[in-house]
Design a protein around this nucleic acid. Structure first.
Lengths: 192, 192
DNA sequence: CTATGATTTCAGTATCAACTGAAAGGATGG
DNA sequence: CCATCCTTTCAGTTGATACTGAAATCATAG
């Protein structure tokens, strides 16, 4: 009965068209996740929950994305651990539902905090250790290979400086939800 | 003959200690690369060239990282394509050498530009398409599933806003080498 | 306590990106 | 022009990671 009229979509129910739009987004989001070190399925599940904006149960997710129960269970748990989705119960229902956070800014803050902790902090720590290994006091005073040591020292110092500053920027994002972030951004954009 | 005296390092030549420090950094950098969607070997090669600060030839890289000629060749080419390392010739030598850019800020700008173009722009494009599919004009005016469509519209809009702003921030970094970037950062940090 | 339905776990399997090594393809010097 | 040395390519292999499905576990209602 209800048919779209524009955009070359031909006859399609509203439901069907909604489904297509959602699936398109989900697929693309999954692809992006992969290239940023996030497993495709997890990214897709999250995209699904985000874009539908409503609680879904495990079977909904399985059917929609064509994945196994095991995969769905483990991925949903991981997303819960990240705290970017939440478990939910419905009155009189036995099974669990899952909802995504609605605020993209908040989600990003959470993810940024976790990745900083897990991936940037250890690198910074390592760089400090490496620099310590190459301090004069640890090396003795002979001139052998001194030029090379100096070069490496400089490079490590340059990288450390970069990471310290990057960390600070991350910190800005982490400490601020939407309102704070848009303020950060306004400042940034106005200054240039 | 030359021995370190501090830090529990025991007897070690300066050369040996330099090597250890460099390898530690290289390994860590490779691990980090992986979790950010950059292949481990490429990250390691780049870390090596960066940290030694001197031109190395293919065989140097192979020996140092224990990788095959084919792998070295392809990875070095990819890094050249990204323009974060450069090919180099030495007078009277037949083989090619490779050097890393020395400025971390510049490297980061280059990488950010490329990843924005390859990974964020297409997502933004897709989101716009999805939103277009769900416009009133494309859907007809019936009320069926209208609430769900509205929800999805809002979610897509929220994500688009986020990505547009993120893109702008990337742009700030892309357009600025070290001096510009530290300025960006100063502004950011002073404002909070 | 038992029955029913939901969830988790994990050993086995599939998938795909990364890597190897040898052969083909340059380029330079004699 | 050939000989030598260096670089690139790519078919085949490896290894890491993700995924499945069925059994075990857990939770709730009766």
């Amino acid at each position: 009965m209800a048919t779209g009229i524009g955009g070359g979509m031909g006859q399609m129910t509203v439901e069907r068209q909604l489904r297509v739009a959602q699936d398109t987004f989900i697929r693309r989001w999954g692809e992006m996740g992969q290239t940023w070190g996030i497993n495709r399925t997890m990214a897709e599940i999250h995209a699904l929950l985000y874009v539908v904006g409503q609680p879904l149960c495990t079977d909904d997710v399985m059917d929609r994305l064509h994945i196994s129960r095991g995969n769905a269970s483990m991925s949903l748990r991981a997303l819960c651990d990240w705290t970017i989705i939440r478990r939910m119960h419905r009155d009189g229902e036995r099974r669990e539902y899952f909802v995504s956070l609605g605020d993209v800014w908040e989600m990003f803050s959470i993810i940024a905090a976790e990745r900083k902790k897990r991936e940037m902090d250890p690198v910074l720590e390592t760089i400090k250790q490496c620099r310590a290994m190459l301090e004069e006091s640890a090396l003795g005073a002979d001139g052998a290979g001194e030029a090379e040591v100096k070069l490496t020292r400089e490079r490590l110092a340059g990288m450390e400086e970069f990471m310290v500053v990057t960390n600070r920027i991350f910190q800005q994002f982490i400490g601020n939800a939407k309102s704070g972030l848009t303020r950060v951004v306004k400042v940034l954009l106005k200054a240039f």
